[in-house]
Design a protein around this nucleic acid. Sequence first.
DNA 1: CCGGGGATTATCT
DNA 2: GATAATCCCCGGC
Length: 203
Amino acid sequence: MKKLPLKFYQHKDVLHIARQLLGKIVVTNIDGIFTSGRIVETEAYVALTDKASHSFNGKRTARNEHMYAPAGTAYVYICYGMHQMLNVVTNSKNIPDAVLIRAVEPLLGIDDMLKRTGKVKLDNTLTKGPGNVGKALGINKSHSGLLLLDDMISIYEDKASKLSDDQIGASKRIGVESAGADALLPYRFYIRGNKYVSARPVR
DNA sequence: CCGGGGATTATCT
DNA sequence: GATAATCCCCGGC
């Protein structure tokens, strides 16, 4: 396996990247512990025009600063005071497009992921939903700003698992009701039938 | 299986 | 002081 190149993240269409990230492998190497998972659900946040994005209308604060970093940077923030949310920054420097990693299918280091989450046995709740992804992979806010080509958090291409269009579903995003009309945009992507996907597709 | 509500605190106004 | 890109548990069917 090889890491996704910067060029992958520099694509101008964040929706395209959100779809292409499905099936890719996230690997973390944190405090000497390797864990990994296959991405099965993502959401795109579109620079400037998207009311659901932290960077809507060019908003820029200490929290979302890394959304303005170059493509291929990790943006990690805390949600509801406790959940560490992993995002991939795309497009180019100062264009705050990002993709939220909403769910993965656990691969390596399942025992360590169980320890981190305090769970006793593997089931679909281990890495279902963005808060659980961050917790299981050992990701926290201090990792925001790291380049995904470094070794702490990286994403690999898995040539063995190419997805066809009919394996990919789309829906409105989750938990962004306050974004008004933008909450209805079909910016959420998932692998159909995968049990780690965080919610049922909305019709 | 599904919906409601509490937990918990960084962040922004 | 209010809100939040969530999660878990509980009760009802």
